[in-house]
């Protein structure tokens, strides 16, 4: 059970340490059910921290999103640690970043928050249209309770939880320096990739017309790329002009190339936090694309990214007996 007092105490202790630059957690947003990442440098700011079913942001992305500005001459680089609150899925992102050596273990402090699932904002706002009032929420025995000013409203968790949470197999952090409260029961959820199989069962023409409609609506704002904790190349191919891998123009050819490149770069790396799909302003089912590759990776290579800090990245390793029945 989420223990807010413990969380704030630990956060205050952590952020007071000399070797900690800042701590990243969640705070209530400016209206409705929104939550915003909260960057803390002073202990008193920790009072605003929350942990609730509304905290869907994967904060691991900020570990690699931070701009590396040139250090002025005569100054030393700031090598202090960054403290980070993680849910189960977020911790997989941290692990995968460690596996890929995108971050250094000694540069992060991981505060693990065992999690009972976060909500899908669209599902919630369908039930309770978002008003200006800031609404908090909490877990309560199979239900999500929303705390409105005129009383509480409980909803069965299945009705509002994000799809990724309904099939979550890693509710507890895979890796943490401090576990903030006791682990939650992993439950019996399994992941059969029903969404992927449904699409696979269609003909290639049907599949293309599905994706064609989806890719055409893309506005190329790149929020899916930027929010992804695994997308942290310093020089992304999408920004490059020489060679131009993907033209800037928005049409079905370039949009498809963009989505295929993005998905492929996550093959064997996607930890299924679902952030890309959550942030998409035009609601492209990006996870349905990513999950095809996670499924293949799991079936063909028995690999699950972000679960073992000692593993090697899938595409930087091989087994001589990898299956190859498609090769002529």
């Amino acid at each position: 059970m989420a223990d807010l007092e413990k969380l704030i105490t630990v956060a205050k202790e952590t952020v007071s340490r000399d070797d900690v630059k800042y701590l990243i957690g969640w705070r209530q947003g400016t209206y409705g059910f929104r939550v915003s990442p909260h960057f803390i440098t002073e202990p008193e700011e920790a009072d605003k921290l929350i942990f609730s079913p509304l905290c869907s942001n994967n904060l691991a992305t900020y570990l690699t999103l931070v701009e590396k500005l040139p250090v002025p001459r005569g100054q030393e680089a700031d090598t202090r640690k960054i403290a980070l609150m993680v849910k189960g899925c977020d911790s997989r992102a941290v692990v995968q970043q460690l596996v890929e050596q995108g971050i250094k273990r000694e540069s992060v402090i991981i505060l693990g928050c065992p999690c009972q699932g976060v909500v899908d904002l669209a599902k919630v706002e369908e039930k309770f249209p978002a008003g200006l009032e800031q609404v908090a929420a909490r877990w309560d025995d199979g239900k999500i309770v929303f705390q409105f000013s005129d009383g509480e409203k409980a909803v069965p968790r299945e009705e509002v939880l994000a799809d990724k949470c309904l099939r979550c197999r890693y509710p507890n952090p895979v890796l943490a320096d401090t576990l903030l409260w006791e682990e939650v029961e992993a439950g019996s959820s399994s992941d059969e990739y029903a969404d992927v199989s449904e699409l696979e069962a269609k003909t290639p023409e049907e599949r293309w017309s599905f994706w064609e409609a989806q890719f055409s609506s893309c506005v190329r704002c790149y929020s899916c790329r930027n929010v992804c904790p695994m997308c942290y190349c310093e020089d992304c191919i999408l920004d490059r002009l020489n060679p131009t891998w993907v033209n800037r123009s928005n049409n079905i050819s370039e949009n498809t190339a963009f989505h295929l490149s993005r998905a492929f770069h996550l093959a064997g790396r996607c930890i299924e936090c679902g952030e890309c799909e959550r942030v998409c302003p035009v609601n492209i089912p990006i996870m349905t694309l990513n999950r095809k590759l996670t499924k293949e990776v799991r079936e063909k290579f028995a690999y699950e990214p972000g679960t073992d800090p000692a593993s090697k990245p899938l595409q930087a390793s091989y087994r001589p007996n990898d299956q190859e029945n498609f090769i002529l």
Partner: peptide, 16 residues
């Protein structure tokens, strides 16, 4: 600095 800390640097706000 405070308001831009959580910013992802995507183009959703400007494109739309």
């Amino acid at each position: 600095k405070k308001v831009s800390d959580p910013c992802l640097g995507c183009g959703a706000c400007t494109f739309l």
